[in-house]
Write a protein that binds this DNA or RNA. Structure first.
Lengths: 144, 144
DNA sequence: CTTAGTGCAAAGATTTTGCAACACC
DNA sequence: GGTGTTGCAAAATCTTTGCACTAAG
């Protein structure tokens, strides 16, 4: 699976690919799930609130449940940027998040930036980092 | 301020030091605050729940409020280890946390381990990391 | 005796769950 | 039509807040 390669990628293809995954598992494709997927692919780091606004006819718990399903399928991940709600994004094109504690800005950095730390922590502590689950907090250039 | 230098440090001195800070600001020293401080210094990465159990006569919101005060004073920090409640610790002897997503184990690593990443992120993205606020999630050696 | 701090109760924010009704396959 | 899914309402979890009362200085 490779999504998000281009900036204005054709979402329809990615949606179909994910829907195909669902069908392959005997899961069902519903109006709500299409709407959630559309919203998910149309936004950058959507929260459930954003998805809910983008798919107003879908009840909140349905969104949470489907997002959980997508995580189980390995299609998406969620990340905690700060004290607020989690944000969701596609698993492909792995990256980390710098989250400004002052203005809320989110800066994406390539996964490679944490490679050295990951190797070191694995060697020294036997600990396998999966650091995408939490953002790295701090202050962006504008907030000093 | 330097606390936690030794493993079985005499807490009373640290408590008195912090109480002195409070008094110096015209703040008040109460039975509840003493109990919270004692609990805070006696535990490793206490949550509010742990502090509450250790200081059963202190109401929960009082604990939250006092912890906020201590953060404002720069005496403590809180860190989110995962999906659960925040944990609190003294600011001195800075360290980061590896939090096992499987078993909940918390491994402390020296702040120096993130120095290279911190420098790189500052240079390349103008972003000043304060990564103590969130733990680095992953899998500990036992949980593979 | 003045004002900071406390307890209580209630609300806020985010997420989860139970269950009857619904709709995809 | 059977079973996976949804909506609704309620609850769970963690934290914050309003307010009258208490107690530290």
């Amino acid at each position: 699976l490779q999504y998000g390669a281009g900036v204005t990628e054709d979402f329809a293809q990615a949606v179909d690919e994910i829907l195909g995954l669902l069908r392959a598992q005997g899961r069902r494709v519903t109006t709500q799930r299409r709407a959630i997927l559309d919203a998910l692919l149309a936004h950058d780091h959507p929260t459930v609130e954003v998805l809910s606004a983008a798919a107003p006819d879908v009840e909140g718990s349905t969104i949470y449940r489907f997002l959980d399903d997508l995580e189980d399928l390995g299609v998406i991940d969620h990340t905690h940027l700060g004290h607020g709600p989690a944000v969701y994004h596609l698993v492909a094109d792995p990256h980390h998040h710098l989250a400004c504690e002052a203005c809320g800005a989110v800066i994406e950095i390539p996964a490679a930036e944490l490679a050295a730390l990951r190797d070191r922590v694995r060697e020294h502590y036997g600990f396998v980092l999966s650091p995408r689950h939490f953002a790295l907090p701090g202050r962006c250039v504008g907030c000093g």
